[in-house]
Amino acid sequence: MVRMDTVINGTRFDREVEPNVLLFDFLRDELGLTGTNRSCDVQVCGSCTVLVDGLPVSSCTFLAYEADGSVVETIEGIRDSDFYKRAESAFVSHAAVQCGFCTPGFVMTLKSIVEDGGGADEAQLRRSLSGNLCRCTGYRSILDAAAEIVGEQ
């Protein structure tokens, strides 16, 4: 067992975890944070994106204990933020959500873009979001929503 002293969505968790436990499984199985979704398991699709110290990581390939000493945010932890409200309104108005399985991951990546200063143009947004895959929307509506979100700085 290894120690994991981590602030997750504003609450401190000081735990002993098995060294092979993924952050993804810890969040879902231990804390019931099911807004983070599992898809590819190989750090490609971005459905499991969470923020660790403000940076997006694929929680499917990130060991839980590696978050020791860090601040972790999931979709559940940002629902009350101004950023989230802007993001929600943009995703709704552009109908940028279909099955919704990838959506929280996109929102988390966008949060890191906004916190990084935002102001990204379409080409930069395409690059920044190319690690989040969506099979339903074809991306156009997500990029339009994203432009609105990062443009509202």
Partner: peptide, 12 residues
């Protein structure tokens, strides 16, 4: 607007 949009965006 989609009736299921918000639940899907906020992960619930």
């Amino acid at each position: 607007p989609r009736v299921d949009a918000v639940a899907k965006i906020d992960g619930s």
